[in-house]
């Protein structure tokens, strides 16, 4: 948690990253940037999915529809915050010459997406009948 707070400070203070260690090969930084963008796209897709659930499933009951949409939007927010946090951690590890940080977030996200998908199947089957 303290680590996270420290990282949040770095988001807004770019000079702090640059002071540590030495600049890695620019290609590694660009690869890190592309990973960050891929996570940001995942976040945007989740957010778009939230809007889509709200717009394109109008026959669902209100509770289900809003619940699913809010869950997807929240997942998008989490995913984007994690994207920048992981980017900062990787950048810092590369500057210090440490191992890249490991993360259980991808596993967590895939479980959440699987659960949401199963919930969608359930909701579409039940919600349209009832």
């Amino acid at each position: 948690m303290i680590d996270f707070a420290r990282n949040v400070r770095v988001w807004f203070a770019p000079e702090e990253v640059r002071q540590e260690g030495r600049t890695p090969d620019y290609r590694f930084s660009l690869a890190n940037e592309r990973t960050f963008l891929a996570w940001l796209r995942t976040a945007l897709a989740l957010i778009g999915g939230g809007f889509a659930v709200d717009q394109f499933l109008p026959d669902l009951r209100w509770g289900w529809r809003v619940g699913l949409a809010l869950a997807l939007l929240a997942a998008g927010v989490l995913c984007s915050l994690r994207a920048v946090n992981h980017w900062v951690r990787c950048e810092r590890a590369m500057r210090r010459g440490e191992d890249l940080p490991v993360s259980r977030f991808p596993a967590l996200l895939s479980v959440v997406v699987a659960v949401v998908a199963v919930a969608m199947v359930f909701v579409v089957l039940v919600g349209w009948e009832g």
Partner: peptide, 12 residues
């Protein structure tokens, strides 16, 4: 040059 943290944070 590397992406600045400020740009990354703004995008997020």
């Amino acid at each position: 040059p590397t992406l600045t943290p400020r740009a990354a944070t703004t995008a997020v």
